[in-house]
Amino acid sequence: MITPKYVREIPQRYRLEAAKCKNCSYISFPPRLVCPKCKSRSFDTIRLSDEGKILTFTIIRVSSDIFSHQTPYGVAVIETSEGAKLMAMIADTKIEDIAIGKKVKLIFRKIRDEGVSGIHCYGYKAVVI
């Protein structure tokens, strides 16, 4: 049963909520308890914009079982316009159109199902624009 973990992560997965350090302005995504840069424990909650660019990527051709019907698909490290870095699956994009430096939009999509009778799990993906 993944429900408790899933619910805890909703602010990040649905709304891209991040923690901005009140001391040094470093943005942690997902939020952290201690700033990795200045060790402060004081943060503001911010929402990342839905725009970013691909820093690096890979193409998954042999996936874990739950994503096997979606292969081949891209997974990329994305830098948002605020400078936060996150990893996301690439959606609605031909794999030949995925490249380092390409601009992406973060969109709300279904990530996976918990089996045939479990919950649907939603979150962000990136689409190349």
């Binding site: 019907h69 979606q70 959606a91 609605d92 969109i107 709300f108 999509r109 279904k110 990530i111 649907h120 939603y122 993906k125």
Partner: peptide
């Protein structure tokens, strides 16, 4: 709809 799209994801995008 894409494999990762359903009524909820469509509703979310239209509502945004």
């Amino acid at each position: 709809p894409g494999l990762d799209e359903d009524t909820i994801t469509i509703a979310v995008q239209a509502s945004k």
